[in-house]
Every structure is written in C-alpha cells, then in structure tokens.
Amino acid sequence: MHSRDDDFRALTERVRGELKGHGQWALYERTVTFARQGTSTARDELARTLELPGHPLWARELAAFSLGTLGDRRAFETLVLLLNYRDPVRAATAAEALARLGDPRTARAAAALATNPLRTSYSLHAVRLLGRLRAPESVPALISALERLVQGPDHHWAVAAACIEALGAMGDDRAVPVLSSARVFPELREPAGGALARIWRESPPSSA
C-alpha cells in the first residue's frame, strides 16, 4: 500500500491538469496548503470546502481525500459520492481514503453500490474496498454481486473477477456455490478455481 504522501502527490498531479484560470490555481494552492498542514484549523477549512456550494469537483476531491486519510469523518459523504462516480480514477482515490477513514458506515455504503444492478459498471472499486474492509457486510454483498454477474446477461468480467479475488482472500466457505458457478466461464475459470482452492485449504469440506 502506498503511503498517504505518495497517494496525495499523485492526486495533486492529476488535479493540476484540470485547473482553469488564476482563480482555480489560487483555490488549488490554498486547498493543498491546508491538506499538508493537517491541523484542526486546516481540517475545518477543508470541511468548509465540502459544505459550501460552488466549489469544483477537484477541490472537493482534494479536501475529502485529505480529511478521509486523516480520519476526519466529515469527509464520508463526499467520499461515498466519489466512490459512485463514473470516473474510475476518482473512485479509486475515494476507495483509498474510505479504507483509511475507518468510518463504520463505509462497508454498508460500499455494499449498496456493489449490489446495485444499475451501478455495476462503476462498482469495481467498491468491490475491492469490500474485500479490503473484511466487514460483516463484505461476504454477503460480494456473493450477491457475483451471483448477479454470473447469471448475466452482462457479466462485467473485471468486476466479477474482483468479487472472486476478494471472496478468495476472505476464505469464507459461504462463497463456494457462487465460485463454483463462476468457474464455468473461461474468463473466470482460473481466478474462481484459485479462490476455491484457497477456501478449501483454509476450511476443508466436511467428510460427513
């Protein structure tokens, strides 16, 4: 896992490409300064960026990522919004911040996205986040999502593979039926077989 500094540096480099005009540069420099300070006053200023209307999306993303990785739960709602965002780069940034935030609502929000059939094409990072959190909601949500993908008609192979990887890593034998179903697809045969082998190693099937 990258350090917070590495992730923040990558985020600021990406955001710089979106800036338009001197006013946005000034806002960018101000937001980055507060993010680097990390003091109580600086966090209040970042939270204000999230609360006040009219700020560009990149400013809200910078503020939310900074607050989230500092454990400030005022970032939660904005980060969930970004996790649902169509741009996978923004969703990945939000997932990283949510994983570090430690808010108990995170797994429920990620599960809601992962199991929403209307958001499947945007759910890759929510699925990966569920696997990383290993929360009580994780396995049921991942099983539900993978069942829907296996049954089709739109399989979304990358999302399905992420579900399989997460389920295999968690080693929960409740996932065996859906992983067995996934194995019939050539695109999923190898990861599903590997996940099943891992589960059976950690929790051998009963001989009864």
Score class of each variant (00 low, 15 high):
120 T>R: 08
120 T>F: 10
120 T>Q: 07
120 T>S: 09
120 T>Y: 06
121 S>I: 09
121 S>N: 11
121 S>H: 11
122 Y>A: 08
123 S>F: 06
123 S>N: 14
124 L>Y: 12
124 L>V: 13
124 L>Q: 10
126 A>E: 10
127 V>T: 08
128 R>W: 11
129 L>T: 06
129 L>I: 00
129 L>S: 04
130 L>T: 00
131 G>L: 11
132 R>I: 11
132 R>W: 08
132 R>S: 14
133 L>C: 14
134 R>P: 03
135 A>E: 12
135 A>F: 13
135 A>L: 14
135 A>P: 07
136 P>W: 14
136 P>R: 15
136 P>K: 12
137 E>N: 14
137 E>K: 13
137 E>A: 15
139 V>I: 15
140 P>G: 11
140 P>K: 12
140 P>L: 12
141 A>C: 11
141 A>E: 09
142 L>E: 04
144 S>K: 15
144 S>T: 15
145 A>N: 06
145 A>P: 01
147 E>H: 01
147 E>L: 09
147 E>A: 07
148 R>D: 05
148 R>G: 13
148 R>A: 10
149 L>R: 04
149 L>Q: 05
150 V>P: 00
150 V>W: 01
150 V>C: 15
150 V>L: 08
151 Q>C: 07
151 Q>L: 14
151 Q>T: 12
151 Q>G: 04
151 Q>I: 07
152 G>C: 09
153 P>G: 11
153 P>L: 03
154 D>L: 11
154 D>G: 02
156 H>N: 02
156 H>M: 07
157 W>S: 05
157 W>P: 03
158 A>M: 09
159 V>I: 15
159 V>Q: 15
159 V>Y: 05
159 V>T: 15
159 V>R: 08
160 A>L: 07
160 A>D: 06
161 A>K: 10
162 A>Q: 10
162 A>D: 08
163 C>W: 01
163 C>E: 00
163 C>M: 03
164 I>T: 13
164 I>E: 00
164 I>R: 01
164 I>M: 09
164 I>C: 01
165 E>D: 15
166 A>W: 04
166 A>S: 14
166 A>K: 07
167 L>P: 05
167 L>H: 05
167 L>N: 06
168 G>P: 05
168 G>M: 07
169 A>P: 02
169 A>D: 15
169 A>M: 12
169 A>W: 06
169 A>I: 10
170 M>S: 13
170 M>L: 14
170 M>G: 03
170 M>Y: 12
170 M>K: 08
170 M>V: 02
171 G>E: 10
171 G>D: 02
172 D>F: 08
172 D>E: 05
172 D>G: 02
172 D>M: 04
173 D>I: 04
173 D>V: 12
173 D>T: 10
173 D>G: 09
173 D>C: 05
173 D>S: 14
174 R>M: 12
174 R>L: 10
174 R>S: 05
175 A>V: 05
175 A>K: 06
175 A>N: 01
176 V>P: 07
176 V>G: 06
176 V>C: 04
176 V>S: 01
177 P>H: 13
178 V>D: 02
178 V>R: 00
178 V>G: 06
179 L>K: 06
179 L>W: 09
179 L>I: 08
180 S>Q: 08
180 S>H: 08
180 S>A: 09
180 S>W: 04
180 S>V: 03
182 A>K: 00
182 A>R: 03
183 R>P: 02
183 R>M: 08
